[in-house]
Amino acid sequence: MVSAIVFAFAIFCGWLIVDIVKQRKLTLENVLSSLVVAVIAGLAWWVLELIF
Rank of each mutant, 00 (worst) to 15 (best):
G14W: 07
L16Q: 08
V2F: 06
W15L: 05
L16G: 04
V2A: 05
L32S: 09
W45T: 07
V21W: 06
V2C: 01
S3L: 12
V36H: 01
E29P: 00
F9K: 07
L43Q: 11
A44R: 04
G14T: 10
N30Y: 06
S34I: 07
K25F: 04
S3M: 09
A38L: 06
V31L: 14
C13I: 14
A44V: 15
E29T: 11
F52P: 11
V31I: 15
K25L: 10
F9W: 08
V21I: 15
V47L: 15
I20G: 01
D19S: 13
L50E: 15
A41D: 03
I51N: 06
A8V: 05
I5Y: 02
V37M: 13
I40V: 15
C13R: 06
K25P: 05
V36D: 02
F52W: 12
S3Q: 09
I51D: 07
W15V: 10
I20D: 01
I5P: 00
A10Q: 09
V6K: 08
L48E: 11
I20W: 06
L26N: 04
A10W: 03
W46H: 10
G14K: 00
L35E: 02
S34Q: 06
V39L: 15
M1R: 04
V39G: 02
S34K: 03
E49K: 11
F9N: 11
V18E: 11
L50K: 13
F9A: 15
W15N: 13
F7N: 02
L35Y: 03
Q23K: 12
W45L: 04
I17K: 10
K22D: 11
L28C: 02
C13V: 15
V39D: 02
W15D: 15
M1F: 01
E29S: 08
K25S: 13
V47H: 06
I40D: 07
A41K: 01
W45M: 10
V36M: 06
F9Q: 08
L43Y: 09
V6S: 07
I11Y: 00
F52D: 11
A8S: 12
D19L: 12
M1Q: 03
V2S: 06
L16P: 08
S3F: 06
R24F: 04
L48W: 13
K25H: 13
Q23A: 08
L48N: 13
E29R: 10
S34Y: 02
I40N: 05
V18M: 08
A10N: 08
C13S: 14
V37Y: 02
T27Q: 03
F52V: 09
A4R: 03
F52R: 10
A38V: 09
E29A: 10
A10E: 09
L35R: 00
A38F: 01
S33N: 10
L35A: 14
S33A: 05
W15H: 11
W45K: 14
L16V: 03
G42T: 09
I51W: 10
E49P: 01
I11W: 00
V31N: 02
I40A: 14
F9T: 14
V36P: 00
K22S: 11
K22E: 13
A44C: 12
A4H: 01
M1H: 04
